[in-house]
């Protein structure tokens, strides 16, 4: 811990509880969101997934499905569930400051 005084920031959430405005996102905020989601301390492996889905979102307009994550991020399905328990695609999108993936209809 480098600073003793913590900053407070109020952010707007959408109906799924994801960030409403991407501009509010920062790496510090991601860690805070990860704590809320019980993901814990974000490691390099978490960041690999988060960066990948942000890039994918910028290119495709939607966060990727778990299948696509496994195929293209270089992280196995098993590990994805260890990193982001229960719903990796949804949880990682939330921490990355992106809306809930449209994938499931």
């Amino acid at each position: 811990m480098t600073s003793e005084t913590k900053q407070e920031k109020t952010v707007l959430l959408d109906q799924d509880g994801h960030l409403a405005n991407r501009e509010d996102w920062s790496e510090e905020l991601a860690q805070e969101l990860a704590n809320i989601e019980d993901v814990g301390e974000l490691t390099d492996r978490h960041w690999k997934v988060i960066k990948y889905i942000q890039k994918e979102f910028d290119e495709q307009g939607d966060a990727p499905s778990i299948r696509k994550l496994t195929k293209e991020s270089g992280v196995s399905t098993k590990e994805l569930y260890q990193l982001f328990p229960k719903g990796p695609a949804k949880k990682a999108a939330k921490i990355a400051g992106l809306p809930k993936p449209k994938g499931c209809i």
Binding site: Q7, E8, K9, A20
Partner: peptide, 11 residues
């Protein structure tokens, strides 16, 4: 419409 939630986070 349900109002959008806000959340205060500690950074």
């Amino acid at each position: 419409k349900e109002e959008q939630e806000t959340k205060t986070l500690q950074l």
